[in-house]
Structures are given as structure tokens and as C-alpha cells.
Simulated scan of single mutants.
Amino acid sequence: MIPVFDGHNDFIQRVVAAGDDGPRIWLEGDGTGHLDLPKAKAGGMIGGFFAIWIPSPHGPNDDATVEMMQNPPFSMPLPDEIPHDLALPHAFEQAAALRALERTGTLDIVTSVAGLRRTVADGRIAAIMHMEGAEAIRDMDALHLWHEAGLRSLGPVWSRPTAYGHGVPFAFPSSPDTGDGLTEAGKALVRECNQLRIMLDLSHLNEAGFDDIAALSDAPLVASHSCVYAICPSARNLTDRQLRVIAESGGLVGLNYASSFLREDGRRLPLENLEVMLRHLDHLLDILGEDGVALGSDFDGALMPRDLPDAAALPNLVKAMNNHGYGDDLVEKISSENWISLLARTWGN
């Protein structure tokens, strides 16, 4: 079984919601959701980025929003900024939940590529602590504290404004050019992340913010869970110009499995087959090359394709890539090795 290293999941939300039962849901599953340990093992998943994320009062999975997104065109207004004092307790709770999973002995929070490879060799899940939206980081001193706690990947924004920049709305059809770039605090955040070798994630960032990070950062540019704008013109997807900028930096894009970012019509309905995913991968490979394309599922955070309903179904995607003409070496690069190589270049260890 070809191993899969995943660029993004929202599983920690389910752990927190389950309270004291969270570790059991990880170890045994509960019949719901996209990810747990049995599903990961069944699908060949060896690790991934586990996101700390602060929910807005209203989001893309609300019933009224889902109905709107099923019938494009649509444009959701950006949610309000989440104040730091509200965000921080949520973030602490999620970081603690990830540590609780580590105490089960089945998962390690990894902070180096050497450690990642040791964890995988020992048969445990390699988890990268990622923060999606930096509302819980008040200043650079706090960033250093989070780094000491294990944070190694950071997206300055989710799809709303923060003190650091501006996210794109959920909108179709829509350009990602939707507002201002990074604030001065955001530019300082980029420089400090470079110093600490924290990976910066461009997914959810608007085009002006993307360009600011591209101009400031000395690390490879990364979009952990994004798709191709030329196929699906969603504000959340990357234009060919953005893809070329990432390619020029030696960076990487992890393909998002969210049906509404894959489908040409942008509808929030299950993708009927994996052919469209392969078209997105072909397009990414054409611009980024064989070393710049990976996977970023968005498990437990988005509507999955019918043939890829959860992590246990990952062999369906691997088989589809093989049947599409990708050789084993390329499939293994896309499935895991490109992420690990990117982390080595970014973390330096």
C-alpha cells in the first residue's frame, strides 16, 4: 500500500466536541466523520497536518449556507474577526486535545523530518500541529510560545479577517483578488515564522496577501489544501499566476478533496467520480512539476467526493492515479514524499 501524508484535516474539532470521549473516538472510530485511527490505517495514511481552528458563529457548513452553495452563483460575506481573547481558549483546548491523542501511544506530534520518519517507521501517525488562522497569536512572543508547544505550520488567516491579513470569501465564481494585503503585523509574522522555520500556509489567503508573503518569505511557498482556479473558478482556488509563483519558490500545493472546490460548476454537491480530481492534478503537475504536487484532503472540514468518502478510501485515489498513467514513483511523490521533502527544505531538519 502506497503511504499517504495529508496536508490538512480538521479532526481535532471532533475530539474537542467529544470531551473525555475524544481519545476513544480516535482509537476506535464512532461511525461518523472522515478520519480516525482505524480509517487512517485502512487507507495507508501515515500522518498529516492536524489543524487548530477557531469556528465562526456562522460558517460554510450551516444549513442555509450549504443550500446557497449548492446553487451558484453565490458569495458569502466574510465573517467578523474573532477577538484574540475569545480565540485563545479554543486554541488551547484543541492543542490539548492533540496532546491527548499523543498520550494514546498511537500518534506523535512531530517537529522534525527525522522525527517524522522515525514515527512512521515505528507504525505511529505523524501529526504536525498546524494553526489555521492566527487569531490565537497575540504577538511575536506568543508565536515563540506556540513554537515551543510544537507549532510548526501556520496559516495567517482562515476565510475571515485577522490582525494579520484577509481571507477569501466562499464565493463562486469569484477571483481570489478580494481585498487588501497583509497588515504590518502580518508582515512581522511572516518574518518571525521564517526565523523560527514555521511553515506558512497560503490556503484561504486572498491574492494581495499571497503576493505579500511571496515577496517577504525566504521559504518555499505552500498552499496546503487548495485546487485549480482554471478548472473551478472559486475564490478559494489558485490562479495559474499564483501557481507559477509557488513553482518559482520551489514550493508545493496539496490538492483539496472538497467537492465544491473541484467541481467545474462550483456546487456543494458530492463529486461524482475522481476524473475531475485527476484533471486538477494534471494541471498542477504541468505548472509545479513532479516535486511540487501533494495531497491536502480537508477531512472533517468539507464535503468529500462519492468515491473518496473518508481516509479508509484513500486507496481509491491511489488506484485512480495509477490507472491515469502516473507511475509508482510519481504516485508515491504526490501521496507522501513531496510533503516530507518540502518540510525538510522548510524546517531544515
Rank of each mutant, 00 (worst) to 15 (best):
L284K: 14
E28P: 02
V228M: 04
D310K: 00
A91R: 05
A40K: 02
M131E: 02
P270G: 05
D300Q: 00
R236W: 05
R306L: 12
A87C: 06
G150D: 10
F50G: 01
T346A: 11
R152P: 08
S249C: 13
F261T: 05
W53D: 02
Q70S: 12
S260P: 02
E275G: 14
D20T: 08
G123Q: 05
E290S: 14
G47W: 07
L252T: 13
E290I: 11
S226G: 09
G7E: 10
R117C: 12
A215L: 01
G47S: 10
D122Y: 03
Q94H: 02
H130N: 14
I231C: 08
L314Q: 05
A64P: 05
S112R: 14
L269G: 08
P38F: 04
V157M: 02
P233T: 01
E290L: 08
N323C: 13
L269M: 14
D63T: 12
A223C: 08
V276A: 14
I54N: 04
I25V: 11
R103F: 07
L189H: 00
R345T: 14
L196K: 13
L303M: 11
V318I: 15
G296Q: 11
P57W: 06
G209F: 04
M140D: 06
E290C: 09
E28I: 07
L271W: 05
D80I: 06
D201C: 08
